[in-house]
Nucleic acid binder design. Structure first.
Lengths: 216, 216
DNA sequence: CGCTATCTTGACCATAATCAACCGGAGTGG
DNA sequence: CCACTCCGGTTGATTATGGTCAAGATAGCG
């Protein structure tokens, strides 16, 4: 489903060999990687862990615009825009690969394959954004949460018990719901025996039930 | 604000001169330009009029994913995907410029400027999609409608009285609201003297009031 | 003039937000 | 070791926002 490899085959090491000076980073949960509106100097690839991209509202609330997993790229809006469009925050301990945007731009001018790879990621980001628009615009809370959990699980195909570093508030900010409502629905799912949860991990016991629920 | 020119300076005629065989089309309001899931052979630039990109839901409802104005490009997802991701429907009489995707792809391989132009459009589409996610996820009906009307107006900077071919249902499908609720809010805006509406045109009498309302 | 679409309005209902209290685990300090 | 606090989560009661259903109103159109 997802192309997990960085740059569709070009790993960080290979980029490095191509003349990029790539910096590996490891950051703790909760660390802000960059701020919305900040001058964009770097883009990142996410090697391990999860990251949220957040837009802050005037009234202090926040909306999570995108959630990133192993293999995802972010901070690339700086290729054309001067400033970052979101705040990027690590949800768990993350391993990143930092790329200089100026170098990356030059590299992508020279190597069509790199440009192509970025382009494809961009396209997938747009598709995902559009399917979230449909979700938020046309589906109810329960269905949104159900689809979300299933999608989250897709990001960890090998795991039976998923890493799940999201708080109820994160879920709410992603799904456009209050923390209380998220909590109620999660409790409901658990009561029905569809889920099990403990200390940052999640187990989906009855994906089919969730799938049916997400259809409604 | 918006880059209105096609291909950031490359007009349809210029593309034609570059060896693209570009077909000009004129279609009536309500015409379906292509269907979701259909094999994508062509992309389009919108020379005149407005188009909606729609995703249909299982239960028969629809969500408008994007609204397009003069100068916008659409159908380009076919560059990488085989199939169209939305249904494109003309809201008014439209003048289109049809581009063969295969040719366009080749052209964009040869001319970095073309590729760059498409890339930038893609990026703007993503930004708009993300701001709609914030809208749908975090703002109330009134605020969403207010911001939408102001944005619609931006697409017609020269007009005092705007072309407004959207039905209440279109508005609802775009904003994630029922037609009735849209109707109520529109009536409210009109009662407060912020808008005037007649026969497919809209006049924004008090943009400042709308702006304040859209902030809440 | 009558037909049909769309729009409007009202009454009622459902979904989800808000407000508030409480629970429970992880740290912290005595 | 135990109280205490803090934070996130849960639950309940109440409110509000917006959806649904149904009945008119309006306007384009043959």
């Amino acid at each position: 489903m997802r192309e997990r490899s960085i740059f569709a085959g070009l790993s960080g090491e290979e980029l490095c060999a191509l003349g990029m000076d790539v910096v590996d980073l490891e950051l703790g949960a909760g660390t802000t990687i960059y701020h919305e509106g900040e001058d964009a100097c770097c883009a990142y690839t996410l090697r391990e862990g999860a990251v949220k991209l957040v837009k802050s509202l005037a009234d202090g609330r926040a909306q999570i615009v995108r959630l990133l997993h192993h293999g995802d790229l972010f901070g690339f809006e700086g290729l054309h825009r001067q400033r970052h469009q979101h705040t990027a925050i690590a949800l768990s301990t993350v391993k990143l690969c930092r790329l200089d945007l100026r170098e990356l731009d030059q590299l992508s001018q020279r190597l069509p394959v790199v440009r192509e790879a970025i382009f494809r990621r961009w396209q997938r980001a747009l598709e995902e954004a559009e399917s979230r628009i449909v979700d938020l615009g046309a589906r109810r809370a329960e269905a949104r949460l159900a689809t979300f959990l299933l999608q989250w699980a897709e990001a960890y195909p090998q795991h039976r018990s998923l890493p799940f570093p999201l708080t109820r508030q994160d879920l709410g900010e992603f799904l456009g719901l209050s923390t209380e409502h998220v909590s109620r629905i999660m409790a409901d799912f658990k009561r029905r025996g569809w889920l099990r949860e403990s200390r940052g991990t999640l187990e989906i016991l009855m994906p089919q039930a969730l799938r049916e629920d997400s259809a409604s």
